[in-house]
Amino acid sequence: MNRPARLVTAVLTASIALVLTACGSGGGDDSSSGKIKGSDTGASDSPSTTASAASGTKRPEITLPKSLQVTFSGWTNSDPKLQAILDDGREQLLGSYSAIVEANPESNAMTFYNTGAALATGKEWISGFVKKDLTLVGTAQAYNPQTRVSPDGSGTLFYCVDESKGSTKDRKTGEITNTPADKAHVLYQTKLSKNDTGVWQTTSVTTTQGGCR
């Protein structure tokens, strides 16, 4: 399913699935868990420090509330180029969650880590949450990332997100809607391009609900 279709499905089914990252081959070389603000460590609201700064480019600070916890399993690779793709792909995902929580499709993280079709559809997708006055709560785990650099120089990143313990919440009524079990393990497939400042920006996204079962 491409993202425009998922825009409608995600809001109607109130899935926690977040827009971005996943493609390629050749995964990470260990199973360490990357922690961010609001992760299962119980950390308070503070800037995420997960992004690589190898290019010397200043990344936007990304924060998540305690009500939304995200962990990453296996997001390391011994190849510096592949690790850079993993790092920026991870921040793209976090930036999408943050934009939904902040009800801001134009957030700095969205425009920094996305470009082209991914940016346009990402803004539209987040706007769907804003119009329905929904936010995200609970926990999610991104796991089994696989990445590579293609012959044309672009990057691909595949990964899964377990949303089984994630929910949407109506900001006005407080009503919670859980992610359906058969759609909880979402496959993300994305393509990335390295810009002039050394940032791997996501250029396209495909997601499949239940694709990692």
Rank of each mutant, 00 (worst) to 15 (best):
W125I: 05
A184K: 07
P151S: 10
G42D: 03
L192N: 08
A10I: 11
L12R: 14
N114C: 07
L187K: 15
A118F: 10
N178E: 06
N178L: 04
P65M: 00
V19T: 11
G56C: 14
W200E: 02
G74K: 00
L157K: 04
V205N: 09
T202F: 10
S25V: 14
T207W: 09
A51N: 04
G34N: 09
T207F: 05
S96I: 09
V8P: 00
P145D: 01
T156Y: 11
D133N: 15
S167Y: 12
G174W: 09
S154N: 15
V137C: 02
S55G: 15
S31V: 07
R90I: 05
N2Q: 05
V19G: 15
A54L: 06
R171F: 10
A84W: 00
T135Y: 08
A109E: 10
E163V: 11
S25I: 09
C160L: 07
P4N: 04
L136M: 02
N195W: 01
G56E: 07
N104F: 09
S96T: 14
L136G: 01
L86Y: 13
T50A: 12
Y113S: 10
A84H: 02
A117R: 10
N178I: 03
S39W: 11
I36N: 12
T71M: 07
S46T: 12
N2K: 06
L18I: 13
